[in-house]
Nucleic acid binder design. Structure first.
Lengths: 200, 200
DNA sequence: TGCCTCTCTGGCACTGAGTGCCAAGAGGGC
DNA sequence: GCCCTCTTGGCACTCAGTGCCAGAGAGGCA
């Protein structure tokens, strides 16, 4: 049974990869909104109906990585000793996951597309909210908050702000055409948020 | 001409209000996604086509306020002396705008719907991003950042984090069934984000 | 080899959102 | 009365997304 399953998932993943590859090509070539699902299906040589068996939405093609990145982020964060303070731990986790990214020029194009396409932007933020749910439990531990007190905003606030900083950094990174360093932008964003002295 | 315009806009605003009222009733009664535009149009006694002349999207009915609230927020913020530090100024602006809200029980239902409906959630975050654009210039002034240096993430980071805190507070406010105090939740969220001592 | 079953696939038809186009109507100015 | 303008409704269309069903292919079993 496990052997079968491996075969199934393997071919299934192959189709995933094929669709993603084909669709990304079309997106970068002619724009996200200008590309229809029929077009993707035709180019990938599958039926329109089958497309929807692999991706629920056109946006999911672009943002599929974000979901898995979230899981990776959580695992990375949970591997960091609890003695490390929340912001430090988050910073470290972000850096490690970001370090895995290859081909920054392609990434830049995709990021640019994401920031410029409203529906993609919205969905990407939704994914970031899912990150929040994944990361909050660990931050609660670091803060020493008792299990299920839902009225304490601390952990949510920290994670949410950290992701907001990441988003701001990403935005600026795109705006500068990939010139600036993403990690550096993130650090400066966090610094600005957390510095007590605000005005001379 | 100005008299005409007033009449036009007045009747136009009347239709806006009518559609909004009717639609909100349907949303709260049978759910957002379960309500179709045809239904809204029929109930409001206008044609489907005319509906789209007033609202670009079904979501815009619910989130129409957020756009105007953003403008109000900007004006409120700009009325606060520049000597006031960013976080303090934002806090004050949020409180003033929030104070105008009537009927917290209705607000709670709407907020609940917004957090539970994915498409609404996504759009509401988009609106919050627009707030960001509105508020950042003023925060830049408070930080003393020179006009058009786009590579400084400070102002964006602060505004983005503040809105994130507001969002977290709102989320918890809904989760507690409106029991907790929104302003208090916000303060605690900001405190958690900005406190240097993170772990005992 | 033939049969059974399970899954993947494609095709069809449908709903619902959103848009472009055009003709008809309401209201004000002359 | 007529003209101009803005609004309205209706029609037809594209595109996203879903439900349903029939057929193809692969593996298990006698």
């Amino acid at each position: 049974m496990s052997n079968q399953e491996r075969l199934w998932t393997r071919s299934r993943q192959a189709v995933y990869a094929e669709i993603t590859s084909v669709a990304m090509g079309l997106f970068l070539e002619q724009g996200f909104e200008q590309t229809t699902i029929d077009q993707i299906a035709a180019t990938a040589a599958i039926s329109r109906r089958s497309f929807f068996r692999y991706f629920g939405t056109k946006e999911d093609i672009v943002l599929g990585d974000l979901a898995s990145q979230g899981l990776l982020l959580r695992d990375t964060l949970e591997a960091i000793p609890l003695a490390v303070a929340p912001w430090e731990a988050l910073r470290e986790a972000f850096r490690k996951v970001d370090g895995l990214t290859r081909q920054r020029d392609v990434m830049l194009k995709i990021a640019k597309m994401m920031y410029e396409t409203p529906s993609l932007r919205a969905r990407s933020i939704e994914k970031h909210l899912q990150w929040q749910e994944l990361l909050v439990p660990n931050i609660r531990l670091r803060l020493g908050i008792d299990g299920d007190d839902p009225s304490d905003p601390a952990a949510d606030a920290i994670v949410s702000s950290a992701i907001a900083c990441l988003d701001v950094a990403g935005q600026l990174w795109v705006r500068t055409g990939g010139t600036a360093d993403l990690a550096d932008l993130y650090d400066r964003a966090v610094l600005a948020v957390r510095t007590p002295i605000e005005k001379t």
